[in-house]
């Protein structure tokens, strides 16, 4: 993978943007979804590490908008536009949303991965951003990074090695 100095790290329930030679990375995605937006013309990229599907369930005083699919994606888009990205060139990719633990009965909380994926897709549709590729579901964790120079998304997992989208 890429040298550390050009890496922008995105934590859990966090988002960030970068350009040109930068690589944006988030580690240990389980049920969370790593969603990237990219403007290939300006070589501007952004990534959000979405933890929960909807801000409607939030009971916190000060909302962390990077945490929820419905608030993180519009925020990531506006951060990219502020950097000079062209709205109708922006494309999305995403990975994560796995179901690490399968319990008998499977209550709603444990289906959080698939729900995060659905919610991210809905948010992208609402914003009219095309989803170019995804590597979601399964029962394993992922570390992902997007190269802002190419828009390629690299996905690493313990058992399946490295995959490129």
């Amino acid at each position: 993978m890429i040298e550390e100095q050009s890496v922008i790290k995105v934590g859990m329930a966090d988002l960030n943007v970068g350009s040109y030679d930068k690589v944006i990375r988030t580690t240990g995605l389980g049920s969370c979804v790593g969603l990237t937006l990219y403007d290939p013309g300006k070589k501007l990229g952004g990534m959000a590490h979405v933890m929960l599907p909807s801000s409607e369930i939030a009971r916190e005083g000060k909302l962390n908008i990077a945490k929820f699919a419905d608030t993180a994606i519009p925020e990531l888009l506006s951060r990219l536009l502020n950097l000079g990205a062209i709205r109708n060139r922006i494309v999305a990719k995403m990975a994560g949303g796995s179901q690490m633990f399968a319990f008998a009965g499977g209550n709603d909380t444990m289906r959080i991965g698939p729900r995060n994926v659905e919610s991210c897709k809905r948010a992208l549709e609402n914003l009219n951003i095309p989803l170019l590729a995804e590597d979601t579901g399964g029962s394993y964790g992922r570390t992902i990074e997007i190269a802002c120079s190419t828009g390629l998304l690299y996905i690493r997992s313990v058992q399946k090695g490295i995959k490129e989208l």
Binding site: M12, A13, T27, G28, L29, G30, S31, C32, M51, L52, I57, A58, R59, E60, N64, K67, S98, M100, F101, T109, M110, I112, Y140, G141, R142, T143, V158
Partner: peptide, 18 residues
């Protein structure tokens, strides 16, 4: 698996409030 991916399942309830 990766610790982050596993432990995130324990954080969902707290995630709703902080």
């Amino acid at each position: 698996d990766m610790a982050g991916a596993i432990l995130s399942y324990g954080l969902l309830q707290f995630g709703q409030m902080g």
